[in-house]
Design a binder for these strands. Structure first.
Ligand SMILES: [Mn+2]
Ligand SMILES: [Mn+2]
Ligand SMILES: [Mn+2]
Ligand SMILES: [Mn+2]
Lengths: 219, 219
DNA sequence: TTATATTTTTAAGCTCGCTTAAATTTATAT
DNA sequence: ATATAAATTTAAGCGAGCTTAAAAATATAA
């Protein structure tokens, strides 16, 4: 295929499928920050090319070809992120945007060599699993969003949404990194925000942010 | 700017300037494998954007802005080539095409980090100098094409044209790499080819190929 | 100088990926 | 069930970057 737009559409579709493996054009448009009309247009092309199942006014599915293509894009993206962060020392809140471009410009050969050079990393710098050459990837760990924790529970940060603008740079400021332990001191009813303790400091985190940070309970 | 086509035009212009720092549209078109009409079109845009001096029917010059942009593209390209070859072990006859894409997808920040990681390489895998952050680059060594050598002279390979299709994979087959010593056993008048000795083997090299391999005489 | 060849530009048209505005279909609420 | 809202598609249009064909300018050769 080799087409930046189509590759980004496929990735966005795959990343935002609902529980039944479908997505509506409207959501796709908003994720891609693009008009609904443009989405309709592109869906016809992706359908024509065999990457999505598309019928007017219906939800969209990926074909199996579309799904492997999308997974391979995630693979490229995440391997680049690991390289940029781990090898070049680029901060984790900057690697996503760079990988967003590099993913379209690198052959599978480069990606495979990079993977080997990095010694087969299993997750990207934000905790997302990296598909292997055959599209197999570890299931996301049984993680929960911070908002799902109860008061007085402790948890370890496992994954952070890398898709939400400015989220990473904000949570970096308040000291959250992968592996960090947090403690839920209080849950505030009226706005859904959470009072958490990190490094002995108390911080109030809005529900919008807390819902994008995924953790594993510590017993 | 951030535009693949325009970036490739600028690089092609810079790489093919004549002795007086100019290039004609026709040559540019053939280097880019594109129609003359398309070149005319793009030259208007590059001129509008301040990267080239362009007047109808005249030879093209780069503005100083155009020149720095072009040199920065060469920098990106060549640093990627070094990384791919040296770090990932990709053969030197494959890195050019890959770098041709990566060069458009990487911020200066990535390039600077890569340069540091690679410990400030001075030449790319084909012997071309790498401009530094300020656009300064070593002059090409005082090299000559193999065709300019005389019979019974010895020389060391310093640089190989990385722009000519299939050249690299061919000369790799006959054993030529950077630093290799060659000996001119004979120059054949009628077709301009050269009989050279590499690793004690005699090989006849056409003038077309020999003219793209640059060497330093050994006394 | 004049004829011919080559280069360059102009003109018209194509696909791609987007836009806004209007029409249509589907979903939601009363 | 009906009215209203939201989602989706259609229609028209735009810029980028190409193409081929024709016209115009420049270079080369006789
Ligand atoms: Mn992308
Ligand atoms: Mn990520
Ligand atoms: Mn390029
Ligand atoms: Mn090179």
């Amino acid at each position: 295929m080799n087409n930046i737009s189509q590759e980004d559409y496929l990735t966005a579709i795959y990343r935002n499928l609902d529980d039944s493996g479908e997505i509506k054009p409207n959501l796709l448009a908003s994720k891609l920050e693009i008009s609904n009309a443009a989405v309709t247009d592109m869906l016809r092309k992706l359908s024509r090319d065999g990457f999505v199942d598309y019928q007017k006014y219906k939800s969209i599915k990926l074909t199996s070809e579309g799904e492997s293509y999308a997974k391979n894009m995630l693979r490229r993206h995440r391997i680049w992120e690991v390289f940029l962060h781990q090898t070049l020392g680029m901060p984790w809140d900057k690697v996503h945007d760079e990988a967003e471009k590099l993913e379209h410009s690198s052959s599978d050969e480069i990606i495979n060599l990079l993977e080997e050079f990095l010694d087969y990393p299993e997750v990207d710098p934000h905790g997302y699993p990296i598909p292997d050459k055959n599209g197999k990837m570890k299931k996301n760990k049984a993680v929960m969003a911070i908002t799902e924790l109860s008061e007085n529970e402790s948890a370890k940060v496992i994954r952070v949404n890398d898709d939400v603008k400015n989220l990473l740079s904000y949570i970096t400021k308040i000291g959250i990194t992968l592996g960090k332990e947090i403690f839920i001191k209080d849950k505030l009813e009226y706005d859904g925000s959470v009072l958490i303790v990190i490094d002995k400091k108390e911080i109030n985190v809005s529900s919008k942010i807390a819902s994008n940070i995924f953790v594993e309970k510590i017993k």
